[in-house]
Design a protein around this nucleic acid. Structure first.
Lengths: 342, 342
DNA sequence: TTGCTGGTCTGAAACGTTTCAAAGTAAGCT
DNA sequence: AGCTTACTTTGAAACGTTTCAGACCAGCAA
């Protein structure tokens, strides 16, 4: 294969047509050196006439960077994560980076596989939202990803990367306290998987609020919903079917909320008339729900923006210090899903 | 810079450590040639000891393909698109491809810019969901993207690429017919932007249903919601505030539905008691809505799967024929948001 | 004329792979 | 031993850029 097949034009074709050296074309295209106006315009014209599109792959190889940010997240169909992805995408775009994405669907094997793939592709930086009880530990992450990493939403123990987190304890505590303030004393919690840190913190916040107001904590008031609709629905039904069911429920995630709503419908319980409900994690559709939910909204916009900014700072060498952490408070949004118990 | 800085190990380091040639290491790693067991294990051991991670960028350069699929879509936060993205991501992962993503937020400039960026990055294939009245025409797309393209959800006139579409006319017609079947005669439509083909088809389906049942069509029954919550809300209010308002509404998109719900709440109208509502495009949260909506569900799973499969077929050279089109029927899901008019 | 100075431009090396012609080796056959 | 055959392995070219040491050239001072 000695002949050059001009399937797509290269910088050499441009150079030839403009009757200049390859290096000069590169200089023009990157504004990386002074070029006389005459040659510059000859080059630009040649680029135009040939419809030349630079080959980013070759460029990356030479430069040692790809202009690509990786995003590994649990679930694109969860609006909370989708919102984060959207913000990160926008930040990347603004900084001239591309985004390569992986939705792990809480699949450990896939999470690991994708992290390795990202490393092969030599991403310049990674936003990592670990899924479930992450299979990825600090050592593993450090050895498998050489680029800067920022943990978002969840983190893993012992990692020395930037992290942008929600104060889960505070959010759950605020919601629970709100219910107590409205007169509720039997408050149920539909928690997530007990082996995830986030769930533990949220449960801790719930208990703290109870304790602070002198309310007893009961195992029978906590159901584990696994962050899935079906299991949340089942857990809720179990709580409702007790001899003395709760008068209010705290939901700990989007999916959980859906499951709870299903359970309420199944038992013909109206909210807030028969039972009150509050949730962590606002939905963009909250205003469409009937009733509109009282929630602890995660400041997803802000969290996403900080995460992107921190990552880009490191990628572009604007920051080289130690690991930073940013913890965000959930914002209590009072709507219409809570009413004092009868 | 004459010294080789071993920041990260290369295939040469592996070759040196295993005391074989570089080419042999490549053969082992890609199973691309018979290699004696002895050397093979020496190579694998060296890979292991050095923690060698192949450099996908260099590989892509040599191979002329990147193992990357591009996805350009209007809005990640729209659950319908998120669902599509998720399916496409899964298909790519299964086939060993990475996904690079761009959410254009209906921004023409960004859409164009990202298409060009994808071309620079030499994606192997593109799934393109045009946004709004797409700024991208057939000629532009053909000249700017050399890889195979499949259009999803929407297409652009005159393009000779595979397309996977919803039968928008049929979906709107089915919903409208359902309302008529329930006894409604004054049926409002909250349409999208009139300059988008999709909107036109949906409106046409609505009119066709009316005509087929001998109902008059009235300009006053159609509001244009721009596919946004706010404008949909405003358009709905305008319809409701007429002398003889509709007894039922057809919503043409996710966002529109939210806007309509807001408008109903604002006018203190209960659904379905006071007014009936049907919508195109099922939400994953539909079951959480009160009342659960009767919808024409888009078979997003199937559409996403076909789009990915078609694209990968072309990318992998398994199919080289002319442009294909797959049109999908909306599935009428009857729930509880429709009641005969009083 | 000669030597300098400054500004442009060129040419080749390097980035880390894969591929493939050619070299090497071992085994089998006469 | 000598020749073939079949199988391994090597070495160098190529992929399309960027970078940078040096070539080139014009103008100017001595």
């Amino acid at each position: 294969m000695l002949q050059r097949v001009a399937l797509v034009t290269t910088i050499r074709d441009v150079a030839a047509r403009a009757r200049v050296s390859v290096g000069l074309v590169s200089s023009v295209l990157n504004n990386s050196a002074r070029v006389s106006p005459g040659l510059r315009s000859r080059v630009l014209q040649a680029v135009d006439e040939l419809g030349y599109v630079p080959h980013a792959v070759a460029r990356s190889l030479r430069l040692g960077r790809t202009g690509t940010i990786g995003l590994v997240m649990p679930d694109l169909t969860n609006p909370h994560f989708a919102a984060l992805a959207c913000i990160i995408e926008a930040a990347c775009d603004e900084a001239g980076f591309m985004l390569t994405l992986c939705s792990t669907s809480d699949d450990h094997a896939k999470e690991l596989r994708q992290l390795r793939l990202m490393q092969r592709q030599r991403i310049d930086g990674l936003v990592f939202i670990p899924g479930g009880p992450s299979a990825v530990d600090a050592a593993m992450l450090r050895t498998s990803i050489t680029a800067p990493v920022v943990m978002l939403d969840r983190t893993v123990a012992g990692i020395e990367a930037d992290a942008v987190l929600l104060d889960n304890r505070q959010a759950a505590e605020a919601l629970t306290a709100h219910l107590i303030g409205q007169g509720h004393a039997r408050i149920g919690l539909i928690a997530g998987r007990p082996d995830i840190e986030i769930s533990q913190h949220r449960e801790a916040g719930y208990r703290a609020a109870l304790a602070k107001h002198g309310l007893a904590w009961e195992a029978g008031l906590i159901g584990y919903g696994q962050f899935h609709e079906d299991s949340a629905c089942a857990a809720t039904l179990a709580l409702l079917d007790q001899p003395s069911p709760p008068t209010a429920l705290v939901s700990t995630s989007n999916h959980t909320t859906i499951g709870i709503m299903r359970a309420l419908a199944e038992r013909r319980l109206a909210c807030p008339a028969d039972i009150s409900l509050v949730a962590i994690d606002d939905l963009p559709w909250s205003s469409g729900f009937e009733p509109e939910l009282t929630v602890a909204a995660q400041p997803a916009d802000e969290m996403g923006r900080i995460a992107s900014a921190w990552l880009l700072d490191r990628v572009l060498g604007r920051f080289g210090g130690g690991a930073r952490t940013s913890v965000h408070r959930g914002r209590l949004v009072v709507r219409r899903s809570v009413r004092p118990p009868c």
